[in-house]
Amino acid sequence: METSQMQKPLLGGKLSDESFITVFMVGVLIVVFGIACIFVPNFYKPQNMLNLITNNWYIIVLGIGITFVMITGNYDMSVGGNIALTGVLSVYFCQGVNVSQNPLANGLGLPYILAIGLALLCAMGVGAVNAFFIAKLKVPSIIVTLGTMMLARGAAQVITQGAQRNTSLPDAFGVLGSLGIPGTSIRLPVLVMIALIILAFIFEKKTVFARRIYLIGANPVAARLSGVNVGGYLTALYIVSGLLAGITGILLASEFEAGVSNRAMGYEFDALVIVLLGGISITGGFGSVLGMFVGAIILSVVTSAATGMLFSPDWQFTLKAIVTFIAILTQRFALDKRKG
């Protein structure tokens, strides 16, 4: 009896706060998109709408990992550096041995598959280092991950001597990044992104693991006392976040057929921005992958509309900052209103 009574309002269509915020941000997206269509010629065309999603696949892939890390109340600022490191490593591992006088043309000569595997392992290693400091030593995640960001990017710079590696690559190297559905702008990385989003969505809604992530975020002490291995969960999440950054790094390196040490500068900030736009709260236990996805499209609409209105690229920093503040404040206002 009681349970059925308690479930009644739920069945009656009452949204959870998370779904409410997601719906709210979809509303914002429609408004922003409408405004962009008025001011920017051809903004409404299907090809442009498709590009809004496909051009941002890397930020969305990173956003998945960051979403879950942030739901636990932690940050991961190491992803940008991790992308650079993985990309550079995937190049370095499969470059030919002693092919040239130039040290930047010589690598380890491993098969491409092995190179990718090892690079991904290193990416997960960065995540594991983060997890060690955060879960074991209880150091604030923002400080550690800023440190590992520098370590990872620094390692990439050391391997490329501050530049890039792009010679004596095997033929297989460029395949991953350039494969695509013929006649469309949809390439393999975009498909990977879509697959990962669906996977993350199912994971978030259907697994006990995900529900415990929310518990850790909402109340870490309660989670620990009720027998949840908080450290283990954090470790898993950071390694997954590192893995996603690694996948991004490998796909980007393949797309450009180069391992560039300055690749993905500031991506950690963009990923943080889309997660915040999606309504995920750093105070923990609140947010959804779907929200992050909506946030990513909002950011994409705003930045490409600004470019379309011939703003100089220098505007992007200011624009992102203003959009984020507005998003944080309106989301809070909307949630407060809803609670009465």
Binding site: G147, T148, M149, M150, L151, A152, R153, G154, A155, Q157, V158, T160, Q161, G162, S261
Partner: peptide, 8 residues
Amino acid sequence: YWQTMAKG
């Protein structure tokens, strides 16, 4: 190019 890594 070692600077970033050293600082990290």
